[in-house]
């Protein structure tokens, strides 16, 4: 998939506190940097206290931020059970990129939480997922780093860039390059 010239609708789901907002914000800034029009929708308030949080990003000529059911090109899940509840958002042929140890049911499974814990990057599973996704949507790694530098608090910037790199490399691994 290439967001440089295709209208793309990306639906994201996770649990409050996992960093869905930062993931969505980073992807929108990356697409905007490539000269695309973007509109996103975010969840704020009480749901962010550990509840189900969703976010949508529409790249292209769209007026409204919500993605209708059956229209998402990509479904990114930070939590596998929550993701299963939103599979109806995908269009036929759409792909899922999910943070899970379990490869079944999803197009791409990335054990971002496990990797984050092993690498001492607690709390950065969302950035590992972002690294994976940008590889998939044909985005330059350094473009993504530049965006993170502009939106990330200084305190966690180094950790975020490291996580981004790990995610990007994971996607570059051979086993993920097999076509699905």
């Amino acid at each position: 998939m290439d967001i440089n010239n295709t209208d793309t609708q990306i639906f994201m789901v996770g649990r409050g506190g996992q960093g869905i907002l930062v993931l969505a914000r980073a992807l929108s800034e990356i697409a905007f940097k490539k000269g695309r029009r973007v509109i996103t929708s975010e969840t704020h308030g009480m749901a962010m206290r550990g509840g189900t949080v969703t976010s949508s990003l529409k790249i292209g000529d769209f007026a409204s931020p919500l993605i209708p059911a059956g229209c998402a090109d990509i479904l990114i899940g930070l939590e596998q059970n929550d993701t299963r509840d939103y599979l109806h958002m995908l269009r036929p042929g759409g792909i899922t990129i999910v943070n899970t140890e379990d490869r079944n049911d999803f197009t791409y499974a990335v054990d971002a939480t496990g990797i984050a814990l092993n690498q001492g990057l607690k709390g950065s599973a969302n950035m590992i997922m972002l690294g994976f996704v940008i590889r998939y949507i044909n985005t330059d790694f350094y473009d993504a780093c530049a965006v993170m530098e502009s939106i990330s608090p200084k305190r966690v910037l180094d950790q975020n860039i490291k996580a981004l790199e790990i995610g990007f490399e994971t996607a570059s691994n051979e086993k993920y390059n097999q076509s699905h």
Binding site: G50, G51, A69
Partner: peptide, 15 residues
């Protein structure tokens, strides 16, 4: 259009 079944949402909780 397909009918949309309501998804079960995880309830929010104190941190």
């Amino acid at each position: 259009y397909p009918e949309i079944h309501t998804t079960k949402q995880r309830r929010p909780s104190l941190c």
